[in-house]
Amino acid sequence: MHNKSNVTIPIGNITVSLGREAVFNCFVNITGRYKVNKVAWVRAEDHTILSIGTKVVTHNSRIFVSHDNLYTWQMRIKQVKESDRGCYLCEVNTNAMGTQEACLEVNVPPDIFNEDTSGDLSASEGENATLWCKASGHPPPRITWKKENGEPIFIRTNLRTFSTVDTYNGTNLNFWKVDRSQMGTYLCIASNDVPPAVSKRLSLYVNFSPSIKVPNQLLGAPVQTDVQLECYVEAYPNTINYWVKNRSEMLLNGTKYLVREERVGYRISMWLVIKGFTAKDAGTYNCVSTNSLGKSEGTLRLYGKQIHS
């Protein structure tokens, strides 16, 4: 059969990112005195005619068609939308019909749904808690979790032990019987190899009543020396901390006492320096920590120590 009209080279499928331009080149070999309006671009899905010759007939201002006066017919779709995804036909309407099909894939970078995330979460220690995060995009994004400070994520394996991972994959980050060690800010990262990846910060707050550790409960101090007492507190939310002598007198910063504390996360270090220790300073000292969930205290006993020459 003598074919006077031919679409000679496959157009080839195209993948572009949202908002970019898609360019289809259709190579048509038409011999004889055929008019230019013999070439049409058609949307395959619903057979909508987009253009005849170089005239765009569809109501879409983003579509442009051109002809190089030789063999190439070009259709450009500017600022590609997801709705442009699908297949297109280059049709040559002559005695010898020729058709080529090319499909357009539109990649969409990830976007996290703010309304479909857990947001920051507060839970009591021992409760179950879940941070979750969902995202759109094409291809469908992967969700990865990381700790914002770069520390590993603690995953409880049983009542007493945890495993650690640098990243955790999945929409939901589940905390079974949440522990204070799991408190912190987590990054939900959505990626699908279409830049840019996006992330959202979600904080997990674990509430528990104060607990106190006293490293040295019995201290001997030589007369006229400065003595430092220390207590270590774990608690969340924030605590009010103070020192008491002999169960009555609250000790304040001044010429006799230096009271100081330092907080890192849910850990608080408390120090009391007694200046110029004398026999009157011997006795019982308590470090006290209180928050909305409870109160705890540690006990230290201080006695005078003779220095033998």
Rank of each mutant, 00 (worst) to 15 (best):
M1A: 13
N3G: 05
K4D: 10
N6A: 05
T8K: 08
I11Y: 11
I14S: 02
F24M: 10
V28M: 01
N29D: 13
K35H: 05
V36S: 09
V36W: 02
V39T: 02
V39F: 03
W41L: 10
W41Q: 04
R43D: 08
D46M: 11
D46S: 12
L50A: 10
I52R: 15
R62P: 06
V65T: 05
V65N: 02
V65S: 00
D68F: 00
R76E: 11
I77G: 03
Q79A: 12
E82D: 11
D84R: 03
D84N: 12
R85L: 06
R85A: 15
L89T: 08
N93F: 06
A96N: 12
A96V: 06
M97P: 15
G98D: 02
T99D: 01
E101C: 05
A102G: 14
A102R: 07
V106E: 00
N107H: 13
P110T: 12
F113G: 01
T117L: 10
T117V: 14
D120I: 01
A123W: 04
A123P: 00
E127W: 02
N128P: 04
A129M: 08
C133G: 06
A135L: 09
H138M: 08
H138Q: 12
P141Q: 00
I143V: 11
T157D: 02
T164A: 03
T164H: 00
N169A: 12
N169M: 11
V178W: 01
Q182C: 06
Q182I: 07
M183L: 02
Y186I: 08
L187Q: 13
I189Q: 10
S191K: 09
N192V: 09
N192M: 11
S203P: 00
N207G: 02
F208K: 06
L219G: 01
A221R: 03
V223S: 11
P237M: 00
N238G: 13
Y242W: 15
Y242N: 12
R247L: 14
L251E: 05
N253A: 04
T255K: 14
T255H: 10
L258E: 13
R260F: 12
R263V: 14
Y266D: 09
I268L: 13
V273F: 00
T278G: 07
T278I: 13
A279V: 14
K280R: 13
K280W: 01
N291Q: 05
G294R: 06
S296I: 04
G298W: 05
Q306F: 00
